[in-house]
């Protein structure tokens, strides 16, 4: 009796079941927010960079030096992503730039909605530079478009040369690679040419700058690259938003 009634129930279940076609991308929602950010940034002539790397690549030090070099002539702001603490935003503010810290908690990456909210809070000036320091993680941030002009991946020479092969998604998503801590090369067995060759296997169009935030080597080239981007963002600003 018991079994029969269960079968009978199963039959009624089957009759109410139907198939719904969805065909929707899992990242569609994030991409929608990212497009909104991109429209806002381009309407205001703002050049935005999404800085990604492993933890400990020297991202924040590089950022502090970059701010110190540009601050006098270039309006800029920073969005800091970390799982915990205000430490990095405090370092950025001490360097003289307005900064908002987004604590992602357990989250391992920034998403476009968080960044859109932070942009509104910061009240970015027209024709400015927005530096977004993503959570230190070479995997997850690769998938999440924030609306930036470029992802910039920072690889330090104290890591392995084969990191681009191990984390290909990030090196494919980036347009520029900064090979950081190059002042340490004489003390290491790191083969810089090999690291660059690996990165370009993943992404043949990847631009590379060898840099040391500590010694200042390569900084002029990096700063020039940023200034070029800022000029282009201002030049590409739609006429309607002028004035």
């Amino acid at each position: 009796m018991h079994f029969r009634s269960r079968e009978a129930k199963a039959e009624t279940d089957v009759s109410t079941l139907r198939i719904v076609k969805l065909e929707q991308d899992l990242l569609a929602k994030n991409n929608g927010y990212a497009e909104a950010n991109r429209r806002y940034l381009s309407a205001h002539g703002i050049f935005a960079l999404n800085l990604v790397s492993s933890p400990g690549s020297g991202k924040t030090t590089l950022l502090v030096k970059t701010i110190a070099a540009l601050n006098e002539t270039q309006p800029l702001a920073v969005i800091e992503g970390d799982q915990q603490t205000e430490n990095d935003a405090a370092r950025i503010r001490a360097a003289g730039a307005p900064a908002i810290q987004i604590n992602t908690g357990k989250g391992c990456h920034l998403d476009a909605q968080m960044v859109g909210q932070a942009m509104q809070q910061l009240g970015l000036p027209n024709d400015s530079l927005l530096l977004i320091e993503n959570v230190g993680n070479l995997v997850c941030p690769a998938s999440f478009d924030l609306g930036e002009a470029h992802k910039v991946v920072i690889l330090s020479v104290t890591e392995g040369e084969d990191k681009p092969l191990k984390y290909p998604d990030m090196f494919r998503a980036a347009d520029l690679m900064l090979l950081n801590k190059c002042d340490l090369l004489p003390h290491l067995e790191f083969d810089a040419d090999l690291a660059i060759e690996y990165a370009r296997r993943i992404n043949p169009r990847l631009q590379v700058i060898r840099i040391s935030a500590t010694s200042g080597a390569g900084m002029p080239e990096w700063l020039e690259w940023i200034k070029d981007g800022c000029r282009n963002a201002v030049a590409a600003k739609p006429e309607a938003s002028l004035g």
Partner: peptide
Amino acid sequence: NYDVEVTGGDGMRVKELEVE
């Protein structure tokens, strides 16, 4: 050559659902 463009198999999409 390493200049390879990914033309498929890099997405994630919900195709369909069985619902009641």
